[in-house]
Design a protein around this nucleic acid. Structure first.
Length: 917
DNA sequence: GCAAGGTC
């Protein structure tokens, strides 16, 4: 290395010790490099001589460990009761070096004093640029004559590092400003909302979390809350799911080569009549003709190179490891030198990476070594350059093995697993895709198309090493176009739609990634925070549910009309940050507008704190009740009970928050009138209804939530629960009676953003949908309260009902409205999952046609036909009255037909005893 | 006692 003139001292600072070491090693080419200790034991100082553009330099390379400084309020605003939380939007903040970083600060000061240049080797992203300015602040404070330069590099590769030091640039103030703005906004919003909601709610309710109440912090943060929002939203989606019965035609054919199932091209239909008509057409003319046989080569491609989020998702799926634990283990593997830097967004290898060398190291492994050998043997043709996932953080390569290990003695099972995942993932992504031969056979029965397919794996390739993935193969017998055959079975089967599953950790990471919540290095922290704050729990299947606390907080803000639990706020901030980093907005501008908006939002939210209190009251007992609260719990008298004539009926909320007028004689008298779920307030007035008896019946002043009732209804309504009030009945019908079963449920296509929800995990009564009782003791059967389930095309006949032979629940009398049985009356069970059904005339004719045995056995047979595809839920009723020759669909419509298998008109093929004979 | 972002 040649150099002219007098040597200058150049202080180089990297973001972490490992980068300092790499940079120093690469620049010095490991020759003449000295290592000495700094004040911090992790951050060594590397010294060597180097020449930058002909200038002879004494290089001193050291590091920080991420941010050197923190942002916080000035001391006098730090105590929670020191100020109004709203003041935190303007309270002075300052940056300071926390105690545990003081050693690094001192090292920088000492070295900077004797240097002429400062070269910043921080990661090349916005955070890195911000840390660069922290380092500049520290260093220039002790040496104002420093020449400051920035090294820009995209990988720790020799040529890249030499290039960057020969082409030093200026640090980018805009990038650093964007981070400053982000930090300040996060701090002010987080602190203000956290203090506000903690102080408001912690002492007002008995929150039964594992934490001591006094230590409980109900935190709010622009990342943790949207993360919670994802969990709650999915939970609500599941709660509001209405199972819908569907119908599908299945066809199978047994030949000498085996049995094949052909699937209906229409998938499934929700209209029973339609499905039944088509089915009957097929049954009339069951001969199948092969219309097309296709053979195609299909590929299953290996994954992209491994990024942090992908590693977390896969470790969660394959090993049930939490993302937080995965990061801890991967950090340890990285520290010990076995894998590359584990916090990377990059899923594309640089063209300069020696991929073969990485694979070569693994050839000696007892398990996957032979695969690595085969991979490196050119004659195998197994090698393939990895695909590009399209992400590059310009700082780190994809995660890959950096040192061979057959397993270390101090490794836990999870260390072994994660190392194996990193190695196998690497070997997979430099391998050829798996190849399969797929055969698809199309057939036609009476004009209906069915399809069956089979797959034979021709070459497993990467699947040989990537044991975490599989590709199912199934053999299909030979068919030729034009071939005809009679199906072995042809059945009309039913199933019910199912709600989506709870979010898994991988799902949650996906949601966060898509919405830009957190970074690859922090996403697992936000997830863990939900658990630590008792906002969510993770079940045995690694799936997340909100706790009552988490749900109540989201519900409270949602009721205020704020989307603070949605990712929008973060997206908006991210948008502004980008503007600052590109120079199109200044830090001051963004801070001013954003904080102004957030303060207005905060003040407004605080003025609606009642919503938060109400949402909490849905789930939690009040800690100390005031006299007024007690009065409210007792309820205000509306009338004398018309059922028991002994006790008063009072207006109150049940413990789930649903408004009701219930008899004080409970539990002896179970008379109750549930109020529409869209009621936000209800107060008993002194007005007395003129028509309802026995009087007096006091009228109630209602206030409805505007968004939850149709536009032609007024939000204010003076109503009567005595039975005379059509408006109230209509709104009950429209909105349902659960306080959270909002009218949004009636929207034609409920989207994930406007899901309706219930407020309790209790099983609701299948009859009236209310909580706190089962359908067998449902008071609305006798009080005649209409419910949404009774809004069907069938006519319900004057409240007549019988007890279900199967489950004992109420079976109301109804009138069929189908062509074959128009006007014929039947009883059908209201109970969820019960299939009991009986024609009224069959009861009159001796009653022997329906018995408990018949109902139960039909139900079993029908369940079997589902073949595990779906459980029968609410609305999924259907009962096959075997002796009657009719099939009753989910809507109660009896339809005639006959069995394809044996021709018996008394049943359909799906319950035929000879179906597989 | 609050956030989110670095990193050990």
């Amino acid at each position: 290395m040649s150099g002219g003139g007098r040597a200058i001292n150049v202080l180089s600072v990297a973001e972490k010790p490992s980068v300092a070491k790499s940079v120093a090693t690469l620049l010095s080419r490991a020759q003449g490099m000295r290592v000495r200790e700094g004040r911090s034991r992790y951050n060594k100082i590397f010294e060597f001589d180097y020449s930058i553009r002909g200038q002879h330099c004494r290089m001193l390379v050291t590091s920080v460990t991420g941010h050197l400084m923190e942002l916080d309020f000035e001391e006098r605003f730090r105590k929670w009761h020191s100020c109004d939380p709203a003041d935190l939007y303007a309270a002075p903040v300052r940056k300071f070096v926390p105690q545990d970083k003081m050693d690094i600060k001192r090292t920088l000061e000492e070295e900077a004093r004797r240097c002429q240049w400062l070269v910043l080797w921080l990661d090349c992203d916005r955070e890195g640029e911000n840390i660069a300015f922290e380092v500049i602040d520290i260093c220039t404070a002790v040496n104002c004559n420093l020449t400051i330069k920035r090294a820009r590099f995209s990988a720790l590769i020799e040529r890249e590092i030499h290039d960057s030091v020969q082409n030093l640039v200026e640090p980018n103030q805009w990038f650093a400003d964007a981070v400053d703005a982000r930090q300040e906004i996060d701090l002010r919003i987080g602190a203000s909302f956290t203090r506000f909601q903690t102080m408001l709610l912690r002492d007002a309710f008995v929150i039964d979390s594992a934490a001591d109440d006094r230590n409980l912090v109900l935190s709010y943060g622009p990342c943790q809350f949207p993360t919670l929002g994802f969990v709650v939203e999915r939970f609500w989606e599941i709660q509001s799911h209405e199972p819908e019965e569907f119908w599908t035609i299945n066809c199978s054919h047994r030949s000498e080569e085996g049995i094949v199932t052909f699937n209906w091209m229409r998938g499934h239909l929700f209209d029973y009549t339609c499905a039944a008509i088509i089915y009957e057409m097929c049954v009339e003319e069951p001969s199948a003709t092969v219309t097309r046989v296709r053979q195609q080569e299909k590929f299953k491609y290996p994954p992209h190179p491994l990024s942090t989020i992908e590693m977390e998702k896969r470790a969660s799926r394959y090993f049930r490891m939490s993302s937080e634990h995965t990061m801890k283990v991967s950090e340890e593997l990285y520290q010990a030198g076995f894998i590359s830097y584990p916090r990377t967004e990059t899923d594309n290898f640089s063209a300069r990476t020696d991929l073969h060398a990485i694979a070569q190291e693994q050839q000696g492994h007892p398990v996957w070594g032979s695969y690595a050998q085969r991979l490196l043997d050119p004659s195998s043709g197994l090698w393939r350059n990895p695909s590009n996932g399209g992400h590059d953080d310009k700082a780190h390569p994809p995660i890959h093995p950096t040192k061979f290990s057959g397993g270390e003695t101090n490794w836990s099972q999870d260390h072994h697993r994660l190392y194996e995942l990193v190695v196998r993932h690497f070997l997979a992504c430099v391998s050829q895709p798996a190849i399969g031969a797929e055969t698809t056979v199309d057939i036609d029965i009476a004009g209906e198309q069915f399809v069956a397919s089979g797959r034979v794996i021709i070459a497993k390739n990467y699947l040989d090493v990537y044991r975490f993935e599989s590709w199912g193969g199934s053999v299909i017998p030979t068919y030729v176009p034009g071939q005809q055959f009679i199906p072995t079975t042809l059945t009309l089967d039913s199933g019910v739609t199912r709600p989506p599953p709870l979010l898994s950790e991988a799902d949650l990471l996906n949601c966060m990634d898509k919405a830009g919540i957190g970074t690859d290095a922090t996403m697992h922290d936000h997830i863990k925070k939900l658990l630590d704050r008792f906002y969510a729990t993770k079940d045995q299947n690694m799936r997340f549910s909100p706790t009552n606390l988490g749900e109540a907080l989201v519900m409270g803000y949602d009721d205020m009309g704020y989307k603070l639990w949605k990712p929008n706020l973060r997206s908006m901030m991210e948008f502004d940050m980008r503007a600052v980093s590109e120079g199109s907005k200044t830090k001051a501008e963004v801070l001013e507008t954003c904080l102004q908006q957030m303060k207005a939002c905060f003040v407004d939210a605080r003025s609606s704190k009642q919503k938060l209190m109400e949402a909490m009251a849905v789930f939690f007992e009040r800690a100390a009740r005031t006299a007024r609260d007690e009065q409210h719990m007792m309820g205000e008298v509306v009338r004398l009970c018309g059922l028991c004539h002994q006790s008063n009926m009072v207006l109150k909320r049940n413990r789930d928050g649903n408004l009701m007028v219930g008899c004080l004689g409970f539990p002896q008298c179970r008379n109750v009138v549930w109020l529409p779920g869209s009621v936000s307030e209800a107060v008993v007035t002194a007005n007395i209804c003129n028509s309802c008896r026995p009087g007096p019946v006091y009228m109630i002043q209602f206030k409805f939530r505007r968004l939850e009732i149709p536009p032609n209804y007024s939000v204010d309504h003076l109503g009567c629960i005595g039975g005379c009030d059509d408006t109230l009945q209509q709104l009950t019908e429209i909105c349902g009676t659960g306080s959270r079963m909002s009218a949004r449920a009636g929207a034609p296509t409920p989207s994930s953003t406007s899901v309706h929800r219930t407020n309790s995990r209790q099983q609701a009564c299948s009859n009236c949908r209310q909580l706190g009782h089962s359908s067998t003791s449902c008071p609305s059967v006798t009080s005649g309260t209409r419910n949404s389930r009774s809004r069907r095309e069938d006519q319900q006949d004057g409240g007549l009902s019988i007890s279900c032979n199967t489950c004992g629940a109420s079976c109301p009398l109804k009138t069929a409205n189908t062509a074959n049985n128009k006007g014929r009356k039947f009883y059908s069970c209201q109970s969820e999952g019960c299939n009991f059904f009986v024609w009224e005339d069959s009861l009159q004719n001796g009653g022997g046609r329906h018995g408990a045995n018949g109902g139960a056995s039909n139900s079993r047979a029908h369940s079997n036909s589902l073949g595990g595809r779906g459980r029968r839920g609410r609305g999924g009723r259907g009962s096959n009255n075997a002796t009657d020759g009719t099939f009753v669909s989910a809507t109660g419509d009896p339809v005639s037909g006959r069995c394809y298998v044996c021709g018996d008109p008394s049943h359909f093929a799906n319950v035929c005893p000879n179906r597989y004979a």
